[in-house]
Simulated scan of single mutants.
Amino acid sequence: MGRQWALDTITGGPAIVRNGRMDLLATNLLGWAMHSALYDSPAACAGGPPNFARYTFLDPDSRTSYPDWDAAARICVTILRTEAGRAPHDKAMHDLVGELSTRSSDFAALWSAHDVRLHGVGTTTFHHTAVGDLELAYEGLERLSAPGLSLTLYSAEPGSPTAQALSLLAAWAATEHAEHPAEAPAPAGGAPLGSSPVRPTPLDPQKPR
């Protein structure tokens, strides 16, 4: 609960908490809206919380969400490699790597490269079906109180098209909660694990809702 309270105080941009296996564990409302396609993906949600690695390598939709898919895939594998070294006896990690290696030749090739260079700070472009491309700065922070968990914060340049797009996305998320409270998190909370919210209706960037 304390983790969710901390996320609830972050309102300037998307914020998410994940573990080293790339399971998405908690979000603020904007983080949920940004990753609605992940929650909507049968591949990502197979067998547990939405998982970024399964989404990236097993759902073709990821190549739309990540305009620079190659970079996103490399970072994903790097995070998994780092976690495998940190927790070498984690059966869930072994099972995930085995599944991805068997089902994705792209993952198998990247995994064999043994790249463990972490990228905790940088910029990324994310495509959302409702508001278009989002050019975001991000920073990943390890949770000292919970080893293995990482808090990632995203931000947009003030006054930029991305800042406007995030405002539109926040408006959609608040409306989605009001109209479908069982499918979307409360405005002050993260998405419930295992939920499958519907995809957002595309918004007209010139007509904020």
Rank of each mutant, 00 (worst) to 15 (best):
T102S: 13
G122D: 00
G148R: 10
M93W: 06
S160Y: 03
A156Q: 09
N51V: 08
A73N: 04
Y66N: 13
E157A: 07
A84R: 14
Y55N: 01
A170V: 05
A137S: 12
F57C: 02
V77N: 00
R63S: 05
G98Q: 03
H89W: 10
F52R: 04
Y154L: 14
H94G: 07
S62V: 06
A87V: 06
A113N: 11
Y154N: 03
A174C: 08
S150D: 08
A174D: 13
S155V: 09
S65W: 08
V77E: 03
A171S: 14
T124H: 00
S65D: 07
G98F: 06
A53F: 04
T78Q: 09
R86T: 10
F52K: 08
P60Q: 05
T82W: 01
L144N: 11
L151H: 04
L149F: 14
A92D: 12
A165D: 02
P88Q: 07
A174Y: 05
L168Y: 09
T64L: 15
A87W: 09
I79T: 13
A87H: 14
I79S: 12
V121R: 13
W172N: 11
R143A: 15
Y138Q: 07
T125V: 13
L100A: 05
G148D: 11
A108T: 10
Y138K: 08
V97L: 03
T152H: 10
T64P: 02
A173R: 09
V121N: 09
R81Y: 00
L136T: 03
L110A: 09
A113F: 04
E142G: 12
F52D: 05
L100S: 02
T82D: 11
G120N: 12
A170T: 15
P50A: 10
L149Q: 10
L96A: 09
T78D: 00
F107R: 06
S65N: 10
E135T: 12
G132Q: 06
Y138N: 06
M93N: 05
F107T: 02
G85K: 01
L153N: 06
S160N: 00
R54Q: 01
D90I: 06
D106N: 07
P158Y: 08
T129A: 13
L80V: 11
V97Y: 05
T123Y: 01
V116Q: 14
V116K: 10
A92H: 07
A137E: 14
D106L: 03
T78K: 01
S167T: 15
L144Q: 14
H89R: 12
D95C: 00
F57K: 01
W111V: 00
F126S: 00
S160A: 00
A130P: 10
T64G: 09
D115V: 02
G159M: 05
F57L: 02
D90G: 00
